[in-house]
Design a protein around this nucleic acid. Structure first.
Lengths: 231, 231
DNA sequence: TGCGACCAAAAAGTCATACTTAATCGATGC
DNA sequence: GCATCGATTAAGTATGACTTTTTGGTCGCA
């Protein structure tokens, strides 16, 4: 995200999502021009985006009113990111983790029914890499393969809505690392469960894929409970 | 959505989402000015929105390149609506229904753990209304209560991500009616299942709530299979 | 022939100004 | 207290000028 447009959006979006402008508060284009030291064009274009996310609503003679969070497009990748960057981070991580516990098991089930042979091979390969990087305590690489694994399962589900959920998963998995919630060595159970998922998908065993994935997600949530309790 | 901005968005969004401009095709601001007979300002502002949805990417000396569907913000309520309005409707209904089968049971489970007494009362009330309107074969009112029921369950989950999923549910439930897939009288089983969900939530029985909701969604999917097979 | 450097031109990005429009708010009248 | 009217506010739109980034073609060299 570059240019002045991107700069304004990357400042104003998080400010709103982070609560600096509570619901009901009113901003005016003129004051934003001054704040960001740019032209009305740039502000208007950024505001159009925020409006389409339902973060604000624009009205003549009033200005831009910040909408309540319940109205925001909470699935917008930018909104997710902005919220994760703010004081609401723990709360958002919890919400996303719960959502994940709904989506990923079912996606794994569909993957077991629909994955191509190539995807199966790749999943097994990633599961092996996960085991290797866990053993080597290479957390960076582990995260990388973990994200890739989940992304591939979602994609292999053959449902583009599941596929597009990878943004959420990536953010949650990354968030774990940033909160130092990754144990020095990932649980052997977690590693095994990933292999289980890969194998179940390869065998076309939807129920097993679903169950194993559910365990992965439930375990990940348990590991994050300390953060949630801050919320 | 009013004004020229809204008009352009409401024409260009569906055109892209509906495949009139395939991935890789390039539009230019100048030609859009001519097509929509408005100023560059309006086009640029609309384009900013489409860009933030990842429908297009803008580049100097190239123009606006339509992105592949895998990159679109598929969870954006407008994108969902545009796709449902296009030739992809059946496919999108299927994808959304599968997603629904993931999300709603788990949301019902959380609702069983978190719903307020007031919400429980309201759910039971809606289940009663569903039964009455089904018996009276008042499909319009049935749909209305059905949507309200699901919306409330999602809200009662106490997770704003589930709560915000109500757009998806509303579109899918409404889509059934538009495809004349609503039977003359809703299945007594469906009606009973809704009551089961309401009761389970009231009793704090998460497993039962989840199981009953899963059955509702699975049954709804089965009823839509004829449409899916067109996809 | 292939590669790198250079430059003109294309198309978006930004700015400024003017005009239009919708809607809010205050005053007035009943 | 409510309805109407009109002025004013702040967003919506248009236009033209200028800036910036980047693409694509040309040229030179090995």
């Amino acid at each position: 995200m570059q240019g002045l447009h991107g700069r304004v959006l990357d400042a104003l979006g998080p400010a709103i999502a982070g609560g600096a402008h509570p619901a009901g508060s009113v901003l005016r284009i003129e004051e934003l021009e001054e704040r960001f030291a740019c032209s009305r064009t740039v502000i208007r274009e950024a505001v159009r985006v925020l409006e389409s996310m339902n973060l604000v609503s624009s009205r003549r003679r009033v200005g831009l009113t910040v909408r309540p969070r319940e109205e925001w497009n909470l699935y917008d990748p930018l909104v997710i990111r902005w919220r994760l960057a703010g004081a609401d981070r723990a709360h958002q991580l919890r919400s996303l983790s719960e959502l994940r516990s709904a989506v990923e098991p079912v996606a794994a089930g569909y993957a077991a029914r629909r994955a191509t042979a190539e995807q199966c091979g790749e999943l097994v390969g990633l599961a092996i890499k996960l085991a290797a990087t866990a053993r080597a305590r290479d957390l960076r690489a582990f995260l990388e393969h973990d994200i890739a694994f989940h992304r591939l399962v979602l994609h292999a589900s053959g449902n583009e809505m599941f596929g597009r959920f990878h943004d959420v998963v990536g953010e949650v998995l990354t968030g774990r690392t940033e909160h130092h919630l990754m144990p020095a060595e990932p649980h052997p159970t977690a590693v095994r469960l990933h292999a289980d998922v890969a194998q179940a998908i390869q065998c076309g065993d939807a129920e097993r894929a679903e169950a194993a994935m559910r365990e992965i997600v439930v375990q990940a949530m348990a590991e994050m409970t300390p953060v949630f309790d801050d919320a």
